Computed example of a mutant assay.
Amino acid sequence: MSPRLFASIHDVTPHFESEVDALFDRLSGLLGGPRLAMLVVPDFEDKAPLAGNAAFAGKLRGWADAGVEMFLHGWCHRDDARVKGFMQKHMTAGAGEFAQLSRTEALRRLERGRAVVEDALGRPLTGFVAPAWLYSPGSLDALRDGGFPLAEDHLKVWEPTTGRVVAKGPVITWASRTRGRVASSLMVAAAARAAPWALQNARIAVHPPDTTVPALLDSIDATYAKFVRTHRPSRYADLHGG
């Protein structure tokens, strides 16, 4: 099987509408079309609800009609846990919403979020990705019980209902929060570009704040341009049942 490339835009919400528009145009140009996934947040930070926003729902529906895959990406994206673990404290900027949820609460957010996003799209979701790719044990149980076809974390893509891993390998992504994180993410992306053959299934994810740092945009352009020469832009859904 030829190497595959899975491109995604995280944090798709009315709160970041202009940034998402810019990333969609950028990635579509790099990939030769809208061969990418969007991770949709139903109510980002409890201040940008998708429900009732007909204009943004129409935009999502148009992208889905054009072939963009749609994933649920938490409910509000915010981590409200009082006591946070190492990854939550140091790696997520408060975005690990599902990192410590109970099964009951996780399932409630999954079902509520799926209803909102699927109502906007008029079609089923491709799967679920937790904010910051962090899952509590209860969240994993809820994801299985919720019947989502696919899920993803930092190191793999899997089928929650069966537990079958359908793709392995780290996600290439960027961080814009501090100069140190910008520098480290530029280094990781450069290393990935030096050895694209090392990733049979390359997952490359971008976030709206990436658009605020020119060096990150240059790195994103270079990374996608490199991988598109060696990897075929692909759909996550093709991993399910494959």
Rank of each mutant, 00 (worst) to 15 (best):
M1Q: 12
M1N: 10
P3G: 07
P3V: 07
P3A: 12
P3I: 10
R4L: 06
F6E: 06
F6K: 13
S8L: 11
T13S: 14
P14C: 05
S18R: 14
E19G: 02
V20H: 11
L23A: 09
D25F: 13
G32P: 08
G32W: 08
A37Y: 07
A37T: 12
M38L: 15
L39G: 01
V40E: 08
V40A: 03
V41Q: 11
D43S: 09
D43W: 05
D46T: 12
D46P: 05
K47P: 00
L50P: 05
A51S: 02
N53W: 05
N53A: 02
A55C: 00
G58M: 02
K59H: 01
L60R: 00
R61S: 03
W63Y: 13
A64H: 11
A66E: 05
E69T: 08
F71M: 14
G74I: 06
G74Q: 07
D79V: 12
A81E: 11
R82W: 12
K84L: 13
K84R: 13
G85Y: 10
G85T: 07
G85W: 14
K89D: 02
H90W: 15
E97I: 10
Q100K: 13
T104Q: 12
R108S: 12
L110T: 05
R112H: 13
R112W: 11
G113V: 14
G113L: 06
A115C: 08
V116E: 15
E118V: 10
D119P: 08
A120W: 05
G122W: 00
P124W: 13
T126S: 12
G127R: 13
F128R: 07
P131R: 10
S136F: 06
S136K: 04
P137M: 03
P137G: 07
S139R: 03
L140K: 08
L140H: 06
D141Q: 09
A142P: 05
L143K: 04
G147N: 03
G147C: 11
G147T: 01
P149K: 09
P149C: 09
L150A: 05
E152S: 01
H154L: 10
L155P: 00
K156I: 09
V157M: 06
V157G: 07
W158M: 02
E159S: 00
E159K: 06
P160A: 02
V166P: 01
K168E: 13
P170G: 14
P170D: 09
P170Q: 04
P170R: 14
P170H: 11
I172T: 12
A175Q: 07
V182K: 00
A183K: 11
S185P: 01
S185Y: 06
M187R: 15
V188E: 13
V188Q: 13
A189M: 03
A190H: 08
A192G: 00
R193Q: 10
A194H: 04
P196Q: 07
W197C: 05
L199I: 02
L199A: 11
N201H: 15
I204A: 03
A205F: 04
A205K: 08
P209C: 11
D210E: 05
V213L: 03
V213R: 06
P214I: 07
A215Y: 00
A215K: 02
L217I: 03
I220H: 00
I220E: 00
D221L: 02
D221K: 00
A222G: 01
Y224S: 01
A225R: 14
K226I: 02
R229C: 09
H231G: 00
S234A: 15
R235E: 13
D238Y: 10
H240Q: 05
H240D: 08
G241K: 15
